[in-house]
Design a protein around this nucleic acid. Structure first.
Lengths: 231, 231
DNA sequence: ACAATAGTGTCTGTGAGACAGTATCGA
DNA sequence: TCGATACTGTCTCACAGACACTATTGT
């Protein structure tokens, strides 16, 4: 194959579009790390210590490095901000408005992650912002100011969760290894924002679970069986 | 408000992350412009005139400029490559592997667009690549080489179309202003890849259409009523 | 025995799938 | 009249929703 041609073509290309010829946007990932705590759907947030949006809530995020894929950047961010490894995450949406960051052009690719609360160990981020757990629905129905376009990103993520809860096994990613069906139903109800009928719920998820041989004990009522997620 | 603080914070930020301090990935949009022609689902493709992947099929795409949003870049690309304005499009997915372009780091945000065939006027792109219409399912089931990771992107778009056909009114974006129900059903069958029952199909889409007062004529069989899409 | 929660049986309505039937054109 | 395609009626079956009933613990 004409290697000369190849090199020439490459040089031609780099002349019209090289690292130096054009200014480029920065690319970041923003992270929506969801969990359920105290009967509420929450996300990991940081409180901004600097302008712009100083003092406001924001999503944790990292810039995408040249030596990592976008997925890997998301994984790194989740690890740095929430101390989490090996958890479920998926790409949500790319947010690309010109002025979403007043300092510079940043295109942000948002990811959602789902974690059982037991696994979460909040960690102070690299830029020493305090990480906290914030009630998603309370935040979205409040008028609290949220940094950048992060309110819209959170709304988008909330919607994805709701939608995939109806049609996939997504909520299992919020559960510990073993769980009872009343616990699981509660999580579904939180994600969907409505009460469910016990019998119908159990029929729906019947083929996603397998039972274990032990039960709850110590409560002043009938014990509940523990189940595991079955692919 | 402490404007001084604000400026200082900004400078601090730009020091640790400025246009010059870090190399940045390039950001492009790749376009999946779908249409139905001759009973087949097709997309607008270009044939690469340069290395790498010279001679192979590729998706049309443009780099995202600093003065346009990512959505606007997609709109511009659709206009430049297919001569189309005011058509339906939506973001598909961001592809961010490190080596998806062997020349340089490019993160690509893929968009799908749907156009009735009557509107398509293929236009030679800026880098004078020939644009053509390619049968999607034939391409995907063939072993033909496709440039970059574009085969995976096309698969992803094909899947999005199939999925949204089942649950939304997406296919109407492929129809002209007025259409008959047999025509509409044909399009659904192409998108879903299977035959549908007439009566069931009509029940399903009944509330998305409104009838007009005219019919087909000239065919050697019963005429068919024209309908319009109704929100 | 009772409060409290776990778990099951079943009726009903809705909607998809399957198929048979009727309607209306040109030749 | 016939071939061809448009259009409609209706049976069935799977499944979600709603609700009533039974089961098992601690106090």
């Amino acid at each position: 194959m004409a290697k000369k041609d190849k090199i020439k073509a490459e040089q031609e290309f780099l002349k019209t579009y090289s690292s130096d010829a054009f200014e480029k946007p920065s690319v970041a990932v923003d992270l929506l790390v969801f969990t359920v705590e105290d009967g509420k759907l929450k996300i990991v947030t940081v409180r901004r210590q600097e302008y712009p949006f100083k003092g406001e809530l924001a999503l944790p995020g990292v810039f995408v490095g040249m030596t990592e894929s976008v997925d890997d950047a998301a994984k790194r961010g989740i690890s740095e901000e929430a101390g989490l490894e090996d958890i479920y995450f998926e790409q949500l949406y790319a947010f690309g408005e010109i002025d979403r960051d007043p300092r510079m052009r940043v295109i942000s690719i948002a990811y959602i992650a789902l974690v059982p609360i037991e696994k979460i160990h909040l960690r102070t981020g690299l830029r020493s912002e305090k990480t906290e757990l914030t009630d998603v629905d309370a935040l979205l129905s409040s008028k609290e100011e949220v940094a950048f376009d992060h309110r819209a990103i959170i709304e988008c993520g909330r919607e994805r969760i709701r939608s995939k809860t109806e049609s996939t096994s997504l909520p299992f990613n919020l559960m510990p290894e073993e769980f009872t069906l009343p616990e699981l139903q509660k999580v579904y109800e939180i994600l969907l924002g409505k009460k469910l009928y016990k019998a119908n719920f159990r029929k729906k998820i019947a083929d996603m679970i397998s039972e274990t041989d032990h039960m709850t004990s110590g409560d002043a009522h009938r014990p509940s069986r523990y189940y595991k997620f079955k692919g």
